[in-house]
């Protein structure tokens, strides 16, 4: 374990921002801290990073007890802050060159720019970069001291889908370099794709934790199939299928809830047997369903 957090508590006035969060992170994994805005993700990360004092609990990192504002930890950690920036007129290479001078142990920043696919922007002013490019620069800055563990706080928030995918690819590459990544996000599909293990945080408390697939399977969350057709289709034709749990009609579409992947095969068989022309939509259960079923929120008030 590279990081252990035990019963962390932090309050701001009367608000319990973090209310007894515990988890541990293994070396070399991508660990996700998930939850809606205001769940306590950033506060948790900032306590671990030594930027914030906390009221109670223990944090152990690299096998040492964490203390705030300690250079020993700063040298071994890479941190991307959620709300941070660089001077508008600073060039990319200048930022890397400057921030590398704070560390004795450095990686070659030219090499880092290549690895993070931002090399062609090295002479650009920071203000002329796109959102995705800025985030890449921040990742590069976080990695400049060749850290063992990297903290990425909502790194893809506000990025367009393409830039987000590109960032995901980069994060997998960073993992393959042997780094440990602790990331926070409120995009469930992102966590599902990237993270080896996650915790889901709501109102300062951990409400679930583990590998994303395992969480989904353990909860026995059903898959959902929507059948849409121009022809009149009798929902009753799916009734006798074993894998089907529930059938309902919504806006002229048939929504079928079932277990496992069997349900899709069964439905497909019925449709082909009767030669009906339909449009099938298959929605596998995902982390968002886990989150919604645990919190009792609906999709609208969740994110």
């Amino acid at each position: 374990m590279i990081l252990k957090v035990n019963n962390l508590k932090k309050r701001y006035g009367k608000v319990k921002a973090v209310d007894g969060i515990s988890f541990s992170v293994k070396r070399g994994e991508i660990f996700g801290v998930l939850g809606p805005n205001g769940a306590g993700k950033t506060t948790t990360l900032e306590c671990i990073e030594g930027l914030r004092s906390y009221d109670d609990g223990e944090i152990e990192i690299f096998g040492e007890k964490m203390t705030t504002n300690n250079d020993f930890f700063k040298k071994k950690m890479g941190i991307q802050l959620q709300e941070s920036s660089l001077p508008q007129r600073m060039k990319v290479w200048e930022a890397l060159d400057f921030f590398s001078s704070f560390y004795n142990k450095n990686v070659d920043w030219k090499d880092l720019l290549v690895r993070l696919h931002i090399d062609d922007k090295r002479n650009n002013y920071f203000s002329n970069l796109s959102g995705g490019e800025k985030q890449r620069v921040f990742v590069a800055l976080a990695m400049i001291n060749d850290p063992e563990i990297l903290f990425l706080d909502e790194i893809t928030t506000g990025l367009d889908p393409q830039a987000r995918r590109h960032m995901w690819k980069t994060m997998k590459e960073i993992k393959n370099m042997g780094k440990t990544i602790v990331m926070s996000t409120h995009y469930m599909e992102e966590a599902e794709y990237l993270c080896d293990r996650v915790i889901i945080v709501d109102r300062g408390k951990v409400i679930a934790g583990g590998a994303p697939r395992k969480l989904i399977n353990n909860l026995g969350i059903k898959n959902r199939i929507v059948v849409e057709s121009k022809e009149e289709v009798d929902p009753g034709i799916f009734k006798d299928l074993k894998s089907v749990c529930d059938i309902s009609l919504k806006d002229g579409k048939i929504e079928i809830v079932g277990t496992g992947t069997d349900v899709l095969m069964d439905i497909a068989r019925v449709i082909t047997d009767r030669q009906i022309k339909v449009d099938l939509q298959y929605k596998t259960a995902n982390l968002e369903d886990v989150y919604l079923s645990l919190t009792g929120y609906t999709k609208e008030d969740a994110i």
């Binding site: 802050l81 709300e83 921030f99």
Partner: peptide, 13 residues
């Protein structure tokens, strides 16, 4: 703009 905060994560920043 959050530029100052950056110094707090640097050793001796």
């Amino acid at each position: 703009r959050g530029i100052l905060k950056r110094f707090r994560i640097l050793p001796g920043g």
